[in-house]
Design a binder for these strands. Structure first.
Lengths: 328, 328
DNA sequence: TTGTAAGCGTTATCAC
DNA sequence: GTGATAACGCTTACAA
């Protein structure tokens, strides 16, 4: 717990000189610098972050705003943390209460209390209005922010190119000889559907879209999987919305005795760890979670540093990766 | 950004009085208090955490030390955050690099830099030596700590009663009429095995333990699932080590044409979200993740407050919950 | 190249 | 009940 003062006394120079030597700011005689640095090390000097922040007026905390308790978010969070830490920032987490509709107020109150250098918002596509309200408040409060994977218009975000990912997967299905390739997802999310439609257009085939209610849950998904199994003619490939829904689909298909991939190929989306353990191992489109987190951190750091926005804006879009296993 | 000073000027009293009125510490004339509090509100006063920390000498940060990027850890993290936030603590995350063997040094360096009020360690049963080294350092540095779900001896931890969870599940299998109930897991982790053995003893039946190498991965698990499918006589129920391994087991069984639960019942462990989407939906033992996180936070807060350890020690053990679906 | 001294916004010790 | 005033450990004009 040695302080600058202690080193100053021990090395017979002023605090200011010790500070310069340690921060590497101004001019310091090299002999003096040596001595000071050596003493700092032997005395075990560790700068006091709190004092630094108070004095410099800079808070070195970045808040990550999270709703979903999800392994993908966890990977993004880990990706975010690394660049922040290496620039001396701390990442602190704030979990929104999903059941609490007025989360916006509580979150904003918490953010004004913390006065972070920046905020990374882990978006949740099921609550665009809430997200928009939070972005507005960030802008109003002039807090640098970045969102991870938000598709709300006009918001700075690290996006994942879901359209391209699905397009690639569908083209892979076609290349494997699949003829009747269907898309199965919720109606309101369009990014993946767009990729599917693009691929089908490219292939010169008519799209076959099977949609479900966004409010539906796993038991309904499975039931719909059974319905799909009874379609005639049967699709011979299905691009599912996510690994989760793909699992439900597989279950529904098995319940009807359909064999995957012999009768129907199935492709998921996300590449959750469990995807490799499905039966058959699920071919899926992998999200670059860690990379997305890291990219978000880099952008946020530049916004914090006050850099002007690039001409194309702060947002970035990252590519996905098709992971071919056995289901397609 | 109003400061104590601003309120003092506006309300014609000293800073000290404003401070007393706001913190509710000493005696303040109630009329004065009213006036001060009102002004604080209208001026939008928000206490400066940094200044508070520097002056009081108390850092209000708690570090969560994480290795695994896992949804269970994420849920535990969320559980941890809530009680901390409501007591004005901030939760900041530090991810250990799994590939970096000397993580211990880097982590310790980072912790001395941050000087947190306490540390919550998210254990990783695959690296007991590393964990032990970190615990030792926490003790040496006198940083209050709690581990979430560590089974290292002599370490304060919020534990999850895996033995009891597995025991319950096995008794459920027996109650459902299963005769030849096997346990399938890695050799080195004993907590679940202990529960299985206890249940079998209680049932007066000979145990049937199928073990695998802890270093084995999913493809080997699936292969072993196929071997199990060829056993004669076939077990009619298997308690798997985890949901993950249970998925691989299901895949292996299917590959050999075994029907679940008709021929073999399968029980998992963890109740990951995907468990409900397995085919058939996986009966499993649910870990109380959020509760474990919350309990860890409460213990940590008491250690930070300097409370003496309870006679039974700080560690707590939380019960699991059997989630019955269709696989058993 | 080095030193002095005034902050940063709180808390906390005394006197009054 | 209240008010000066000195910390807390660092940064940063401004001098020297």
């Amino acid at each position: 717990m040695a302080r600058l003062k202690d080193i100053a006394q021990a090395s017979q120079v002023s605090i200011r000189t010790v500070n310069r030597a340690i921060k590497g700011n101004g001019y310091v005689d090299s002999a003096v610098r040596q001595r000071v640095l050596h003493l700092a090390k032997t005395l075990g000097y560790v700068p006091n972050r709190t004092a630094r922040s108070l004095s410099s007026g800079k808070n070195m905390d970045v808040v990550a705003l999270l709703w979903g308790v999800d392994e993908l978010n966890m990977a993004k969070l880990a990706g975010l943390e690394d660049p922040l830490r290496s620039r001396e920032y701390q990442l602190n987490c704030l979990f929104g209460a999903p059941e609490y509709d007025a989360a916006q107020e509580r979150i904003l109150e918490e953010l004004t209390k913390r006065r972070p250098a920046g905020v990374a918002i882990f978006s949740d596509r099921y609550h665009p209005e809430r997200d928009r309200a939070i972005f507005r408040s960030m802008l109003a409060a002039n807090i640098p922010y970045i969102t991870v994977d938000s598709h709300v218009e006009g918001v700075d975000s690290v996006r994942i190119d879901r359209s391209q990912g699905v397009c690639d997967a569908v083209l892979h299905l076609a290349a494997s000889g699949r003829q009747r390739i269907a898309y199965w997802g919720p109606q309101e999310d369009s990014t993946r559907l767009v990729g599917y439609l693009r691929a089908m257009r490219q292939l010169g085939r008519p799209p076959l879209c099977l949609m479900f209610d966004p409010e539906s849950d796993m038991s309904l998904w499975r039931a719909q999987g059974r319905e799909i199994a009874q379609m005639s003619p049967l699709p011979d490939a299905i691009q599912a919305y996510s690994d989760t829904t793909a699992f439900a689909l597989l279950a529904g298909l098995y319940a009807e005795g359909i064999r995957v991939p012999q009768q129907i190929a199935v492709v998921g989306f996300d590449d959750r760890p469990m995807a490799a353990l499905a039966w058959p191992p699920l071919t899926t489109v992998a999200q670059p979670c860690r990379a997305a987190g890291a990219a978000a951190a880099e952008i946020l750091l530049r916004k914090i540093a006050g850099e002007p926005a690039p001409t194309q804006g702060w947002s970035q879009t990252l590519p996905t990766r098709l992971v071919i296993r056995e289901s397609a």
